[in-house]
Simulated assay, not measured.
Amino acid sequence: MNVIAYQAAATNPAGVIALLIGGLLIAGALVWAVRLGIKVRSREPGPPRRHEQPTLPESGPVHETREMREPNEVPRAADESERLTPHDLRSSGSRRSENQKRRRWNRGSSGSFGGGGPGKT
């Protein structure tokens, strides 16, 4: 719109009244939405009380366990024409290792490929 149209809208009382009515409708819709939200929120249950909160078991807090794992071998089909299906496979990709001793870093090894050290000598 150009300047003349803005001036015409400002001087026209019908345009000003339409803007006021539109603003009042938007304000009324916002007030209605807030009241509806308050009404819905009042029907919801409140937060749990202190005695309803979860408690620790009698044995105390549960701690994580560490164990060494080793991969399960994928079973092979008896012959090439047989196909393995999902129920032929085990449920987990690893199992508990017999040796639970943790592998440690050795002095002189880089620790990873491209780690910058001389590697195993």
Rank of each mutant, 00 (worst) to 15 (best):
G28Y: 08
L30I: 14
L20R: 15
E58T: 14
R50Y: 01
G46N: 02
E58L: 14
I21W: 06
E44N: 07
R50N: 09
Q53A: 11
L20N: 11
W32M: 07
A29W: 04
G60L: 05
L56V: 05
L25I: 13
R49E: 10
K39N: 14
R41N: 09
L24N: 07
G22M: 00
G60F: 04
V31R: 13
A27Q: 09
S42Y: 05
H51W: 10
E64M: 10
L30R: 15
L20I: 13
L56G: 02
P57L: 04
P54T: 00
P48V: 00
P45C: 07
R35K: 02
W32R: 01
E44Q: 15
L24S: 01
Q53R: 01
V31A: 15
G22I: 01
L24W: 04
I21Y: 12
T55R: 05
I38K: 00
L30G: 15
R35N: 09
P54S: 10
K39C: 10
S42N: 13
R43T: 09
E52C: 01
L24A: 01
G28S: 13
I38P: 00
G46H: 00
P54R: 10
I38E: 02
T55P: 06
L25H: 10
V31F: 05
G46S: 11
L24C: 08
W32S: 13
R35W: 03
I26R: 05
P61Q: 13
H63Q: 12
R49I: 03
H63D: 11
S59A: 07
G22L: 03
H63L: 13
